[in-house]
C-alpha cells in the first residue's frame, strides 16, 4: 500500500502511456492516432515532473533569503529536513525536469502540427483518413507506371 501511495504517479504515467500507445497502434484514423501520440507525449511530461518534485518544496523561483516569504515557507518544514535539503533556508523542487519538459511540449506541438498537415493532404489525395482505405487505394499505384516529366 505504501508503495502504491508513494509511486502512484508512476503507475498513472504507465497507464496513460499505455492508453496513448494503444490509440496510436489500434486506431486506423490518422487524426485519432495523432491524439494518441499527444497523450503519450504528455504522459512523458508527467513522468519527468514527478521525478523533480521535492516534498515540502516550492516552485524553483528563488525567494529572497530571510524575506518574510522565505520565513513563511521555512516555518512549514522540519528544521532538520530544511537544513539538509534547503537552499538559503527554502526547499525548492527540481528545476531541471521543468526545463526539459518545456522543450518536450514544444517539440510535441511541432510534431502534432506537421502530422495533422500531412493527414489533411492524405485526405485530399485519397479521399480518406482511414489507414485501411488508404492502403487499398495505394495498391493501384504499384501496378501503374510512374508519371513522365
Amino acid at each position: 500500500m505504501s508503495f502504491i501511495l508513494s509511486h502512484f504517479n508512476y503507475i498513472a504515467v504507465a497507464v496513460l502511456m499505455m492508453a496513448g500507445l494503444f490509440i496510436v497502434f489500434s486506431s486506423g484514423n490518422l487524426i485519432k492516432r495523432m491524439i494518441g501520440l499527444a497523450i503519450f507525449q504528455t504522459a512523458t511530461g508527467l513522468f519527468y515532473i514527478s521525478l523533480g518534485k521535492v516534498s515540502g518544496g516550492t516552485a524553483p523561483i528563488v525567494v529572497e533569503p530571510n524575506s518574510p516569504e522565505a520565513r513563511e515557507l521555512a516555518s512549514r518544514l522540519d528544521p532538520a529536513y530544511l537544513a539538509q535539503h534547503g537552499v538559503d533556508g527554502v526547499v525548492y523542487s527540481n528545476p531541471l525536469p521543468n526545463v526539459l519538459i518545456l522543450t518536450a511540449i514544444v517539440v510535441g506541438v511541432a510534431t502534432l502540427a506537421v502530422g495533422l498537415a500531412i493527414a489533411v493532404r492524405v485526405r485530399e489525395a485519397f479521399g480518406s483518413v482511414e489507414a485501411d482505405e488508404i492502403e487499398v487505394l495505394s495498391r493501384v499505384e504499384s501496378t501503374q507506371p510512374g508519371p513522365r516529366a
Partner: peptide, 25 residues
Amino acid sequence: AATGLPALGDASSPANAYIGRAYLE
C-alpha cells in the same frame, strides 16, 4: 522500473540531490 524509482518527493533522490540542487545553488 517504477519499483526501483525513488518515492515521489524524495529530496535525496539522485535527480534532485545532484544537478537539480546544483542549479538552485
